[in-house]
């Protein structure tokens, strides 16, 4: 049993819950009637299941005849399908008030992603390419010091989540501004840190680039919508 992955998921869930609580206390989710914890959790579960099933299909394992393998998250999850599945589930669950719900949940969602990346501490998978920077460290039994690339991603996303929450409290972001910025940060962080990751060449770089563009589009769409309403 992979308890380390459960620990990473728990860190992610805790980060999500904490930011939701912080925001709720400051009235940042005003106008949103959804239970954001339930909605976020259900979207994450749907996304994870969709991504896992897609990964099974891609390697030729039938999810219908091997249903037990759906929970083997460690075996691989299709990032693209998981993200799209999660977003689709959220859009469906929040369809009655999508803009408010998206803006209300975006900082917490980003914090959850930060927690997931920071969960590398539990799964011992923080390290990337070799580096001689002072904070680089080596795997147990190795002399090769490496970038703690997952921690870079976690710190960037956590700082951005805090900045977005403060922007909502003290600034007056236009509708979808927070959602669009969160999308840009999430996809952009992955895109920027990808050169520091060691992979076998299957990283969905194009997907991350599309995510950044989609975020910018959402920002622009919200702005245009506001201007046309005025």
């Amino acid at each position: 049993m992979e308890f380390s992955l459960l620990a990473a998921a728990a860190i992610s869930g805790a980060a999500f819950w904490l930011v939701l609580r912080w925001e709720a206390k400051r009235g940042n989710a005003a106008g949103c009637a959804l239970d954001l914890w339930d909605t976020g959790l259900m979207s994450a579960i749907v996304g994870l299941a969709a991504g896992r099933i897609a990964a099974m299909v891609l390697v030729g394992v039938n999810p219908v005849t091997n249903p037990g393998q759906v929970i083997l998250i460690r075996s691989g999850v299709s990032t693209e399908v998981a993200v799209l599945g999660g977003l689709a589930a959220f859009a469906w669950l929040a369809r009655a008030d999508l803009v408010n719900a998206a803006d209300a949940i975006a900082p917490a969602g980003l914090a959850a992603l930060a927690g997931w990346h920071g969960g590398c501490v539990a799964t011992s998978s923080c390290l990337g390419t070799g580096s001689t920077l002072p904070w680089a460290y080596a795997l147990s039994g190795s002399v090769v010091t490496r970038h703690p690339v997952e921690l870079y991603a976690a710190i960037t996303m956590a700082a951005s989540a805090a900045a977005l929450a403060l922007w909502k409290q003290h600034g007056r972001p236009w509708p979808l501004a927070v959602t669009g910025t969160a999308l840009v940060v999430a996809a952009g962080t992955r895109l920027a840190t990808e050169p520091m990751r060691v992979s076998l060449g299957s990283a969905p770089i194009t997907f991350y680039a599309i995510g950044v563009i989609a975020g910018i589009f959402v920002l622009g769409f919200g702005w245009a919508r506001l201007r046309s309403a005025e």
Partner: peptide, 23 residues
């Protein structure tokens, strides 16, 4: 022996393991 991985191996763990033994 550089390292051993118990259980299902994922791409990041395999990539790091390969990088370690290829240096």
């Amino acid at each position: 022996l550089a390292s051993l991985h118990f259980g299902i191996i994922d791409e990041p763990a395999l990539a790091i393991g390969l990088d370690e033994i290829s240096r």
